[in-house]
Design a binder for these strands. Structure first.
Lengths: 332, 332
DNA sequence: GGTCACGTGGCAATCGGTTGCCAAAGGTTG
DNA sequence: CAACCTTTGGCAACCGATTGCCACGTGACC
């Protein structure tokens, strides 16, 4: 086995081009500082040698790594696929690389990742962070942060308009004659989950509807069975789920148990994930612009980092109710 | 706005603990080298200061970054979600961080990412690489590589058992009385795509079935319309798709056009992605162990890197036909 | 008591860039 | 022609770790 060829360094390029390493460096980082013909020459040599600056060395010297960390609770969850894709796109467009971390819904993992990666990235996008407010504050003191679907004072964020989303669902159910529903809730730490619950309570109260919270359930397909059974036991006419994964799991369980949807029970999800419109029956749900959220979060992070402009505002992205076949009139 | 607190460095810990930086370093990287009580003390100080070694500095000095790159053609594609999840799990278990890259199905992007990230990672897992064999060889000369669902000489790989998978599909269709089918093919550069096509041809020939290749189609939902229309125009009794995304797109189009599945046309997918079993009708497809593939690929990469043991074998993971409602007897 | 091995910790070079500062070259102005 | 400015490139000090090598202290053994 021949020894692995050595990667070209800035010194190789400098020697080959007959200039100092600082000149080579500036050709990449500060083009205006270098004479045009010199620069062309250096770039040609670099290209010929297959040179590419070592990211670690660059990060160490300059403090900037042109890398952003993206932490999500569960990569498998198709809901996060949109945010990941959007973030990836925005990062690629800005010439920045993305480091992906899966926190497995656990605050401890999230904290560990932030600490471990903190020095290697320019900042983090935390999607649906499970961290407590104080923990977030501490993380924000050491790192540049942008949150997605989570709000905390002093940290910029991008969130879906949950209040409108929940209201749309309640209005929809009311217009179908439902006088109440159960909410199959997600993890207790989920900020968006409690936002949704508050929204449902408020909207239901306004319309004189009854609402009960079940759960918490881990928001995955497998939890659907328990959620479905609980909804049936409560003799509800409609069950609204924390997210689509749970809702689809509920649909499956109901099919297994021979319960007709929506005749016997209406089911509503949240997120409009991939699959929600071709499951059986197609799921009524609220669509968010997850891809846009991911992209805007990365863009916000980058302006924050590059311009050093701290602008801890909250960007609210609209939601939209998608009525499909899983909801119908309440049974008499 | 108060200035951002400085991150603790090894020098801070050393000073605070009253030892040299080399001692602190060895407490983390070479524990046996340090006296037990000294180590306890240093670790306690490090913990108190919230110290965590700077990954860039570590990578620069030692050559190892404890980071692996994972490049996939399309993050949005739920098929790759399994591999990503598996890779993430294996990486986390090994205390290694994962850098995710989306090549957007483009070889040029893939090459660029390998070059840019090459020095920052210990190696790459390339999932369904779109690179040519020579390009792969060159990439392998500078980086440690492991391929998933792609085979090229001299580079270790993990692949699904496509030959068995395709044979299972053909056998299934034959047993339903189909005398032929069309194959809605994926991208021309897709290695797994051509493997599948070869398998279909061979298996069909053995059984005296006719088979025609359509496409290439970009393997996304939206391409399903064209694929469905082409299959209908060809008066096929069955259409086998490059993957499930395409197949689900086909199902949608057929539903729109009022074509009954499987009565008028049987549809088969490939991959068994999330959603394949609750789309309408549920999709007959071939399941791969994508999560395991991702995990094994990372593990292989890590042994390759750490043990320096070059073992360019191919690990074949079994596939399994999942018969659901989208396939039925050929019409008379 | 001298030698030696061993366990432990420190010194300093090194990794591959970035960047503040300086100097040389060339052009402009009075 | 001197004084001065601007452009351009080089020198060398970092960034924060890792690691080869050396030194010191201790106990054991001859």
């Amino acid at each position: 086995m021949p020894p692995r060829p050595r990667r070209a360094t800035i010194a190789d390029v400098a020697r080959e081009a007959g200039v100092a390493t600082s000149t080579v460096s500036r050709c990449f980082t500060n083009p205006t500082r270098i004479n045009h013909v010199t620069r062309e020459h250096v770039l040609a040599v670099a290209e010929r040698l297959g040179y590419s600056p070592n990211p670690s060395a660059r990060a160490l010297g300059s403090g900037r790594s042109d890398t952003v960390g993206l932490l999500v609770p569960d990569i498998t969850n198709p809901y996060f696929a949109g945010a990941i894709k959007g973030a990836e796109r925005a990062a690629a467009a800005a010439g920045v690389t993305l480091v992906l971390g899966d926190t497995q819904e656990r605050p401890a993992n999230e904290e560990k990742l932030v600490r471990r990666l903190g020095a290697a990235v320019d900042g983090f996008v935390l999607v649906a962070s499970r961290l407590s407010d104080p923990a977030l504050r501490e993380a924000a003191s050491l790192n540049t942060l942008v949150l997605v679907n989570r709000v905390t004072p002093g940290v910029p964020s991008v969130v879906a308009d949950f209040d409108t989303g929940t209201r749309q669902i309640v209005d929809h159910l009311a217009s179908l004659g439902h006088t109440g529903f159960v909410f199959a809730g997600g993890p207790a730490e989920s900020w968006s989950g409690s936002r949704r619950w508050q929204g449902f309570q408020a909207a239901a109260a306004e319309r004189g509807m009854t609402v009960a919270r079940h759960g918490p359930y881990v928001p995955v397909l497998a939890s659907g069975a328990a959620a479905a059974d609980a909804a049936l036991a409560a003799r509800a006419s409609a069950v609204v789920c924390h997210n689509d994964m749970l809702a689809i799991g509920v649909l499956r369980r109901l099919a297994d148990r021979g319960v007709r949807v929506p005749d016997d029970l209406s089911v509503v999800g949240f997120d409009d994930v991939f699959g929600a419109d071709f499951c059986h029956p197609p799921l009524t749900t609220v669509a968010e612009r997850t891809e846009e959220a991911g992209a805007r979060a990365v863009e916000t992070l980058l302006t924050q980092v590059r311009a050093r402009a701290a602008e801890p505002g909250t960007l609210v992205l609209p939601t939209q109710l998608r009525v499909r076949a899983s909801t119908g009139p309440a049974r008499a």
